[in-house]
């Protein structure tokens, strides 16, 4: 580790990693919707896993370590299981190559352009010389103190919510309940 720190200044590494992870997220995101090699929805779901994991890297760089862990556990794990099961249970075929219609192209460009415009406007409104690194750490301990102190009742309600989901899924998918 020491040799690497000598090679690259410590302050530069996070900046470099931001571009790596941001690029990976974008690249995998494009492969989810427009993979030139495969029209299989399962392949898209796998690239979505990679995009989500690259985003976890971005969260680590923002010092949001808990969020990064949750991103991997819940989104790359649980939610992707859900996606894959929807694909497999509904028996979705390979998406056919469709011709691009002019109306759709116009509508897409319009909506993407609007979002891009909003982003650019927002970027201009923010002062870019603000403090570049986050002043508050995404502290897991701080979150835990709040969750098990001030917000302990909502935390207990979550368990009831999970119980309801559990009973619901069993009721829905078991045919002959006694």
């Amino acid at each position: 580790m020491d040799s690497l720190q000598n090679l690259i200044p410590e302050t530069m590494l996070p900046d470099m990693m931001f571009y790596v992870f941001a690029g990976l997220t974008l690249g995998f995101g494009i492969l989810v919707v427009a993979n030139p090699f495969s029209r299989n929805p399962v392949t898209s779901a796998m690239f979505l896993v990679l995009a989500v994991i690259s985003m976890a890297g971005l969260f680590v760089l923002l010092h949001a370590f808990f969020l990064a862990a949750v991103q991997v556990i819940v989104y790359a794990g649980a939610v992707m299981v859900l996606f894959l099961f929807v694909i497999m249970l509904l028996d979705i075929k390979d998406e056919q190559k469709r011709k691009i219609k002019k109306g759709f192209l116009l509508a897409g460009l319009l909506s993407v352009g609007t979002i891009a415009g909003l982003f650019i406007k927002g970027l201009h409104a923010t002062r870019l010389d603000a403090h570049p690194s986050p002043t508050t750490e995404g502290d897991t301990a701080l979150l835990g103190k709040l969750l098990f102190g001030q917000y302990v009742l909502p935390f207990e309600v979550v368990s009831v919510l999970l119980l309801v989901a559990m009973v619901g899924v069993i009721l829905l998918s078991k045919k002959d309940l006694k």
Binding site: F66, V81, L82, L147, M166, V169, I170
Partner: peptide, 28 residues
């Protein structure tokens, strides 16, 4: 696929969310 797989997957997701809450709990 059989619906039984779906049942196992959904239960996995619910217990997975439980783990997320155990994380900050263990830290503090």
């Amino acid at each position: 696929f059989s619906i039984k797989f779906h049942l196992v997957a959904m239960l996995f997701i619910l217990f997975d969310i439980e783990v997320v809450f155990l994380y900050p709990w263990a830290v503090v």
